[in-house]
Deep mutational scan, measured.
Amino acid sequence: DDLEQFAKQFKQRRIKLGFTQADVGLALGTLYGNVFSQTTICRFEALQLSFKNMCKLKPLLNKWLEEAD
């Protein structure tokens, strides 16, 4: 599944880049005006958010990865 794959890759890249889940949540706030909690990022990576929320977060996290690289 696409979302599952993305969540896995996101977590690996985030760790490799040296960011915590909280860092990502704050960075999203800075970039897009939407601060996300560490818990939200954690749940995303664990696929524990609703499908709708996963779909909403994915493009933001994808963009963040591009910026962070």
Rank of each mutant, 00 (worst) to 15 (best):
A7H: 04
L61W: 01
F10A: 02
V24A: 04
T30R: 12
L61Q: 02
F6S: 12
A68E: 05
G18Q: 02
A46M: 15
F44P: 00
Q48V: 00
A7C: 10
D23E: 13
Q48A: 05
F51H: 14
R14T: 00
K56Y: 03
T40L: 10
S37L: 04
L3V: 08
E66S: 06
A27C: 15
Q12T: 09
L65K: 10
K16V: 02
C55H: 10
Q9V: 10
L57K: 04
R14A: 02
K56F: 12
T39P: 05
T39Q: 12
D69V: 08
G29Q: 05
A46E: 10
D23M: 02
N34P: 15
K8T: 07
A27P: 02
L47M: 15
C42Y: 14
F36L: 12
Q48P: 02
T20E: 03
Q21C: 09
K16E: 08
D2A: 15
L61K: 04
V35C: 07
V35G: 10
L49D: 02
F51L: 14
Q38C: 08
K58T: 01
Q9F: 14
F10G: 09
L61E: 00
P59M: 09
A27R: 14
L61C: 02
T40C: 05
I15Y: 08
K63H: 10
T39F: 06
L31G: 05
F36H: 10
L57H: 08
F36Q: 10
I15N: 07
R43T: 00
K11S: 06
I15R: 07
K11T: 08
L28T: 02
W64F: 05
C42L: 10
L57E: 00
F36V: 14
F44Q: 00
K56M: 11
S37F: 02
A46D: 05
F44I: 03
F19P: 05
D69P: 11
P59A: 05
T40A: 08
A68K: 06
T40S: 06
I15H: 01
Q9G: 10
S37Y: 03
T39A: 13
N53W: 12
E45H: 04
F36S: 08
F51T: 14
A22P: 01
D69I: 05
V35W: 11
V24F: 15
D23P: 00
F19L: 10
A68G: 05
K11H: 05
V24W: 00
L31W: 08
E45M: 02
E45G: 00
I15T: 06
I15A: 03
F36T: 14
D2M: 09
C55Y: 09
K63P: 02
E67T: 11
G29D: 03
Q9Y: 14
Q9E: 14
L61G: 01
I15E: 14
L3S: 01
L49M: 12
G29I: 07
G25R: 09
R14E: 01
M54S: 06
R13H: 09
L47G: 13
T40E: 10
S37K: 06
A46H: 13
V24R: 02
A7P: 03
T40R: 05
L31N: 02
Q12H: 08
Q21H: 12
A27I: 03
T30W: 07
G33K: 04
M54W: 02
I15P: 06
F44S: 00
Q48S: 10
L26C: 13
P59K: 09
K8D: 03
N34E: 15
D23G: 10
Q38S: 12
N34L: 07
E66R: 11
L47V: 13
V24N: 03
E45Q: 14
K56L: 12
T40F: 07
Q38F: 08
G29M: 07
V35K: 15
P59W: 00
G18M: 02
S37N: 08
G33H: 03
K8Q: 12
C55V: 14
S50C: 02
G29N: 14
C42E: 15
M54L: 07
N53P: 05
T39W: 01
A7N: 01
T30E: 10
L60W: 10
A68V: 15
V35Q: 14
R13Y: 04
T20P: 04
L17R: 03
A22Q: 14
C42K: 15
K58V: 07
F36C: 15
G18K: 06
V24E: 00
Q12P: 04
L3I: 11
V24M: 02
C42T: 11
N62L: 11
A27V: 06
K58W: 00
R43A: 02
T30M: 12
P59I: 10
F36A: 12
D2F: 08
G33P: 10
Q12K: 09
M54H: 06
T39M: 06
Q21W: 09
Q12A: 12
A7K: 01
P59Q: 08
Q9A: 09
F19A: 09
Q38H: 06
C55A: 13
D2V: 00
S50M: 00
V24G: 04
E66G: 01
E67L: 15
L28F: 05
T39R: 12
R13P: 01
W64L: 01
R13Q: 08
N62M: 10
L65M: 10
M54T: 03
E67W: 07
Y32T: 06
T20C: 09
V35D: 14
N62V: 15
L47T: 05
Q38K: 10
L47Y: 11
A68L: 03
R13T: 05
E66Q: 14
L28R: 00
Q21P: 10
N34M: 10
R13G: 03
F51W: 05
T30Y: 07
F51E: 15
K56E: 12
V35S: 11
T30H: 10
P59H: 07
K56S: 10
W64H: 02
A27H: 13
G18N: 13
S50L: 02
F10P: 01
T30A: 14
T40Q: 12
C42R: 14
K8H: 09
T39Y: 02
K56N: 07
K58L: 01
L49V: 00
R13V: 09
L17F: 13
C55N: 12
C42I: 15
C42A: 14
E66L: 07
E45P: 02
T30S: 13
R43I: 03
C42W: 08
L65G: 00
N34G: 14
D2L: 09
D2C: 05
K63W: 04
F10R: 06
L57A: 05
R43E: 12
Q48M: 05
E66K: 11
Q38R: 12
C55D: 04
E67V: 08
T39S: 12
C55S: 12
L61P: 00
R14M: 00
V35R: 13
G29C: 05
T30Q: 15
K11P: 01
L26W: 09
S50F: 03
G25P: 00
E45V: 00
K56T: 13
T39E: 15
L47W: 01
G29A: 14
N53E: 14
N34H: 12
Y32S: 15
F19I: 15
L26S: 14
D2Q: 11
L49T: 01
N62P: 00
G33D: 06
F10W: 04
Q9W: 10
L3K: 02
G25S: 12
N34A: 13
N62D: 14
S50N: 01
D23F: 00
P59C: 12
Q21L: 09
V24S: 00
Y32C: 15
L61S: 00
K16M: 09
K63F: 11
E45A: 06
T20L: 02
A68C: 06
Q9N: 14
E45R: 01
N53C: 09
L60K: 08
L3W: 05
K56C: 08
R13M: 05
L3A: 00
Q48I: 02
G25W: 00
S37I: 01
Q21T: 06
L49E: 05
V24H: 01
T40G: 01
Q48F: 02
R13I: 02
